[in-house]
Design a protein around this nucleic acid. Sequence first.
DNA 1: GGAAGCACAGCTGTATACACGAATCAGCTT
DNA 2: AAGCTGATTCGTGTATACAGCTGTGCTTCC
Lengths: 227, 227
Amino acid sequence: MTSRKPHPDAVDRPTIEQIQSRILNRICETQYKPGDQLKEAVIAQEFGVSRTPVRDALSRISHLGLVETRNGVGTVVIDLPRERIEHLYEVRFELATLIGKLSPVEIQDHHIAEAREIDAWARRLAKDENSTEYVALNQRLKTLVGELIGNSILRDLWNQSYYQAASVWHRMTEAVGAQAYEHLQRETSELLAAIELRDIAAVGYIQRVHIGYGYQLIRKHLWQDED
Amino acid sequence: MTSRKPHPDAVDRPTIEQIQSRILNRICETQYKPGDQLKEAVIAQEFGVSRTPVRDALSRISHLGLVETRNGVGTVVIDLPRERIEHLYEVRFELATLIGKLSPVEIQDHHIAEAREIDAWARRLAKDENSTEYVALNQRLKTLVGELIGNSILRDLWNQSYYQAASVWHRMTEAVGAQAYEHLQRETSELLAAIELRDIAAVGYIQRVHIGYGYQLIRKHLWQDED
DNA sequence: GGAAGCACAGCTGTATACACGAATCAGCTT
DNA sequence: AAGCTGATTCGTGTATACAGCTGTGCTTCC
């Protein structure tokens, strides 16, 4: 009988998580800027699905506090208030220390290999600036660091707060330009050294230092007029 | 003209957040136990709404890792693996210290009043055990501590991890009985003392101590056979 | 000319119908 | 009798229609 795969017009519909991820990236890339309203119908048509999965994706994103959907209006991208950004950096600053403290993992060879690739990419980017690749590289860095966090709960919190921080950070890098690329390259090279030494605590401290440095940059460039 | 009233009997439909909160509480109260499958249709009928808002609520809860919805099966309550519970307590143990460290708030008179009421309630409960009220009191305690966390991001993470911990904790209190009520009463009285002194750092340390103590209880009663 | 009110257009919130996936059980084969 | 297979049933995943809310621009009245 060979029940043939029906597959009338087998459109490979994107899954909800893919939609969610794509939208999140667009917010982090500042393709969607604070104040923009994301209309479910538009996104739905763009992805070739109905509003239902898009609604679901947006609803999940709203947990991060990056968007807020208002009845009759749309889902608008939030402009994080300064206080919240301060709190965010304070928390990430402290969480960074915990990376090497809670359930440290053993660094594997493939971690080292990945760190080398990332560092090489960062060097290339420092010469040939490209904001899209900059975002992608940061994501890859986030993934690597995430794999080095042995405590699963901490890893979740870390990743979660990453997206909130990234949306602010990438909005700022557009203003500072080359400085951001240099900064990233320094971070990857320090990280590579720590990983090659299989020193997980150092990884955490390096993250801590660069979070602190990033916060100073934000204070200087985003809030210079308010102080 | 016939009365074109759109909705004469305007039933006040529960909002998505109310549904979400109710379901979460049921998981924490262990009314929904690990392995149970929550069927959208059943919950929808119970709340007098369609599946759509229920789906939304469940989808939001799923990000806490307490439930997982599988296609064709249902939304099942997760039995948190031991490792994850360990990680959870590790993280909350560390987060507790940050309560008094990051953006400390000034304790107000109404905080003291609330702490007194909570402590009085805990004393009553210690004599007249009641598991439903026990859960409710813990929630009220969570709310109070949350108001004392000045860092908004930390507060979010704290509350978020609360629900994960509560579902495990309340499942255990059924086993230990009176000991849990005594423990809670000690916690509230210590907390009251710290709050009356307007010592926010002490609040954090007290939480830390009791999280550590709670973890010991879990190790003893839930995993005694595995060690 | 200005301000208040009203109608309209567009978006989200909800309900419902249908498609698809998974598990179970009866009936057949071995 | 045991194991496999196919149909049935019940669940979630998706699409769509409609109801409700909101902001806006026009009209109208002062």
